[in-house]
Every structure is written in structure tokens, then in C-alpha cells.
């Protein structure tokens, strides 16, 4: 152990003992209530749970990376703050070899759970997980937990993004007056694609007369091209817009300017433009984060694939009260959501 490692170890140990002294209630129960003020100091604090997260864009991206960051932060709050759950993260790691190095490093540092929050990290993760059988990993958005490859320490998680896409599509179809709806896609891949496919089906199932125009900008970060795409949609008559990825801030800005409604996905985007974002499909990972923590605490480190749906609450439709959406539109959306949850309705074509 080098000097540096020892120092780091001391720091961590220091934080731990300080945490133990201060925390009262930090049992990592799945339904843990928000941390109560330190009262019964006699109760021994549970061991600090250490989570590391690696993601491809900024944790402030109002989209994919932020959705996981917010979820872990929420769980952390439930577990009594830093003393209950320690979170370290590396964001903006778009390049896979760099992400692999980060994942491997966190795994080697003794984190309990290392979250590889990027579909593209899968192949590297498979290799790394093999070398650290005692560390639990989570990978998303993905369906394969590598159990078939003999790995027992990888969780996978995948959002059924088309479900919320469909519901937002119903809303869009109900409120459009021009019967033109615009979709600002980044690229035709991953959950961006399933979201768009679900959205399109939601619109056309609800309103036969409505047209859905789709554009792609070819990457996740080109904000100004996204803005130009949104503007083109409005010129083509669209009065409702949606889109996916961190670059949609460009489109939201245009929607605000043109005073038309935006439907968001991944994170709750109401904060970006409170008078413009009608509703967002929110990836609420906090449920599965809690579930994974419970499983790990009881000795199960992987071989489970989670799917977030409207039914299990991993996907939520978050309305923004500041934007007026007619009650009948909301009712139609709720009905569609219920049908999807009951399995009566397929969100994908």
C-alpha cells in the first residue's frame, strides 16, 4: 500500500467514524423515511454504503446522467446523508476506455456498488466484473446482466421509455391545434429511439389527423443544431414539441420563445423553462437503487435485470402545474397509462 493509499484510507476511516458518531438513523431500508434528526445516538449506525457512478454526460445535463445522479442523491437523503451513503462519481466520460479505467478504479477502491450508467460501457464492464467478483456492478440502460456469461455480480436496468413516450404522445395529440407535432431526436438509437417510437404511436393512435415530423441532429450534444431543428418544426406548423438527450435544452429554449408546449423525457425538465415544459417522463431510478442496495446488503450482488415501467413507478409522468393542460387530455393520458400498465396496450408499434 503506497503512502497515498494509506492517507486515503485514513480519510475514509475518519469520515466513517465521524459519520458513526453523528448518525442516528441510517438503516438502508428500502422504505427508509427521510433522515430523522439525531436523537437516539445510542443506536449503532449501519455501515456506510459506498456507491460510485460513471456516466457519459454531465450530471447537470437535465437528461440521462442527471436522472441517475438525482436518484442516488434522493436515496442518500433517505439513508441519512453522506454517512449512510457515500457517492463518488465521474461524469462526462463519453469515451469507453476512459470509463473502463474509472469503473475498474472504483471497483478496486472497495465500493459496494459501481454504477456504469451508459449502454456503451457494457463490453468493458463484462471484463471488469469478472476481475472483481466481490464488487456489485450495475449497468444501464441495458437488459443483459451477463448471468449467461457466468457473472453473478452485475445488475442491469432498462427503462421502457416507449411507455412514457406513448403517454406524452397522447397528451400531444390532445392539445395540438395545428395537428402537427415535432420530435427533436438526437440519434436513432437506444432509449432515444424507443421513446420516439412510443411517442409517435401515442400521437397517431389518439389523433388520426395529426402529423408527426421527426428530425435527427446526429449527436447528443449539438445544442444549436437542436435549436435550429426545433425552429424548423415550428415553421412547419408544429405547436407541440418533444425530444431526447442533453442537447434538447436548445429545443426547449425555442419552444419557450414560440410559446408552445414541450414534453420532456429522462429528467424532469420543468425547471429549465417553467412556462413551457408541460410534462416530463422522469426516469426515477431511486426504487431500483434502493432494491440493489438491499440485495447487496443481503449478499446478492447481481444477476438481476430491472425494468422500469409506469407500473412499477420507475417511470413517472411529472406534470408541470404552471402549464395549462386540459383535464380531458390528462384523463386520456391517464387512461393510456393504465392500459399500458395492465398490459392491454402495446406502446411500441
Amino acid at each position: 500500500m503506497s503512502k497515498i493509499n494509506r492517507r486515503k484510507f485514513l480519510t475514509i476511516a475518519g469520515t466513517l467514524s465521524a459519520g458513526a458518531a453523528l448518525t442516528a438513523c441510517a438503516a438502508p431500508a428500502p422504505t427508509a423515511a427521510p433522515a430523522a434528526p439525531a436523537g437516539g445516538a445510542a443506536k449503532p449506525a449501519a455501515k456506510q454504503f459506498k456507491v460510485a457512478m460513471v456516466c457519459p454526460s454531465a450530471v447537470t445535463d437535465a437528461a440521462f446522467s442527471q436522472s441517475m445522479f438525482d436518484a442516488i442523491k434522493a436515496v442518500q437523503k433517505d439513508m441519512g446523508g453522506e454517512s449512510g451513503l457515500l457517492l463518488k462519481y465521474s461524469d462526462n466520460v463519453f469515451q469507453v476506455p476512459n470509463a473502463a479505467a474509472a469503473i475498474r478504479d472504483y471497483a478496486g477502491q472497495g465500493f459496494d456498488l459501481v454504477i456504469a450508467h451508459g449502454t456503451q460501457y457494457g463490453n468493458s464492464l463484462q471484463e471488469i466484473a469478472k476481475d472483481f467478483p466481490n464488487v456489485a456492478f450495475a449497468w444501464g440502460t441495458a437488459t443483459d446482466n451477463f448471468e449467461s456469461k457466468g457473472l453473478k455480480n452485475v445488475f442491469a436496468y432498462n427503462p421502457k421509455a416507449e411507455e412514457g413516450g406513448y403517454v406524452l404522445g397522447v397528451l400531444a395529440a390532445k392539445i395540438t391545434k395545428s395537428n402537427v407535432v415535432g420530435v427533436c431526436g438526437p440519434v436513432e438509437a437506444g432509449d432515444a429511439k424507443t421513446f420516439v417510437d412510443g411517442f409517435k404511436k401515442g400521437v397517431t393512435d389518439t389523433n388520426k389527423a395529426a402529423k408527426v415530423n421527426v428530425t435527427y441532429t446526429g449527436n447528443f450534444s449539438d445544442v444549436s443544431l437542436m435549436a435550429a431543428a426545433a425552429e424548423t418544426h415550428t415553421k412547419a406548423g408544429a405547436d407541440v414539441l418533444t425530444g431526447s438527450s442533453q442537447s434538447v435544452v436548445g429545443a426547449i429554449g425555442i419552444a419557450k420563445d414560440k410559446k408552445i408546449v414541450w414534453f420532456g423525457t429522462q429528467s424532469d425538465q420543468a425547471g429549465l423553462a417553467p412556462d413551457t415544459v408541460g410534462a416530463s417522463q422522469v426516469y426515477d431510478w431511486s426504487g431500483i437503487v434502493k432494491e440493489m442496495i438491499n440485495m447487496i446488503n443481503s449478499g446478492k450482488k447481481g444477476a438481476v435485470s430491472f425494468e422500469t415501467t409506469l407500473k412499477n413507478g420507475g417511470l413517472k409522468i411529472a406534470y408541470n402545474d404552471k402549464v395549462n393542460i386540459p383535464a380531458d387530455a390528462k384523463a386520456a393520458a391517464a387512461a393510456a397509462a393504465k392500459d399500458i400498465a395492465d398490459g392491454k396496450l402495446k406502446a411500441l408499434p
Binding site: T119, Q120, G122, D144, V187, E188, A189
Partner: peptide, 22 residues
């Protein structure tokens, strides 16, 4: 972008409907 989402995409990505461009 074109090749990795079209002609060169991993057939497994299409089968799994994940469409990751690789």
C-alpha cells in the same frame, strides 16, 4: 453515425431492440 446505426450495427443490438450504435 450512419454506418454504426445502419449497415454495420451489431445484429444483436437490433435483436435486443437496444440499437446502441456499435
Amino acid at each position: 453515425n450512419f454506418l454504426l446505426r445502419g449497415p454495420m450495427i451489431d445484429p444483436k443490438e437490433v435483436a435486443a431492440k437496444t440499437y446502441l450504435p456499435q
